[in-house]
């Protein structure tokens, strides 16, 4: 019997990094789903969506293991709660990715040809945000280089602002187009599903900032 529950923190840190990898894979599959859908390859889109669904299940499993380890004594109490919140936020990114795929395949929004590239751009721009979050989180748990982490978080903020800007312009263009109101509303919801992932990444990045602050004495 050891004095401590040995290496629990290392174990949790490793699982958090694994979780982020899975979340990133989830987003990549979501991107593929959207690409296939916009090309009209519904079968391929279904296949990618199924993969997203499986990856989301895996992230749920990892999240549960992290929470279990945390409340069995990994990390000190207050920090433990903050890590728990951070992990829940991360998991929500995958949840949003799955919901987005479900939306495309369940509701089959009809996106006019002239808007397709702009819808695709939203998910394309989300992936670099996820990469930044992954790098910042890995650094936080492995090296703790605060400057590097801050830079990555700033990049996330810039990318998210750009997506917000695109979303605003696309919404304006949708509502000033000749589409029916029903189509406009449907496409607006579709856009919201796509941007929900970048919103959640930014939210998670904000929590990483909280972790960064509380890791200082």
């Amino acid at each position: 019997m050891g004095l401590f529950k040995k290496g629990k923190e290392q174990e949790v840190a490793g699982m958090i990094i694994d979780l982020l990898k899975k979340v990133h894979e989830c987003l990549e599959q979501t991107q593929k789903t959207v690409v296939h859908y916009l090309r009209g390859d519904i079968e391929d889109a279904k296949y990618s969506a199924l993969k997203t669904d499986h990856l989301e299940t895996e992230t749920d499993h990892i999240r549960r293991m992290i929470v279990d380890s945390l409340y069995r004594g990994a990390f000190l109490p207050i920090f433990r709660v903050e890590i728990h919140n951070f992990v829940e936020k991360m998991d929500l990114i995958a949840d949003n990715a799955e919901i987005c795929c479900d939306f495309f395949l369940g509701q089959r929004p009809e996106i006019p040809e002239k808007f397709k590239e702009r819808f695709l751009k939203v998910i394309d721009d989300t992936l670099p945000m996820s990469r930044c979050l992954k790098e910042a989180t890995e650094d936080f748990f492995i090296k703790g280089d605060h400057e590097f982490i801050k830079k990555r978080m700033a990049e996330i903020g810039i990318l998210e602002s750009a997506i917000d800007d695109d979303e605003w312009k696309l919404t304006r263009d949708l509502f000033t187009s000749d589409l029916s109101l029903a189509a406009k509303m449907h496409l607006k919801r579709c856009l919201e599903k796509l941007t929900s992932m970048s919103d959640q990444i930014e939210d998670t990045s904000d929590w990483l900032d909280v972790l960064l602050i509380s890791s200082r004495v």
Binding site: F4, A13, L76, G144, D145, S215
Partner: peptide, 11 residues
């Protein structure tokens, strides 16, 4: 700076 190291130190 590393939270794992810091945690171990405090423990």
């Amino acid at each position: 700076k590393n939270p794992v190291l810091r945690d171990t130190f405090i423990r």
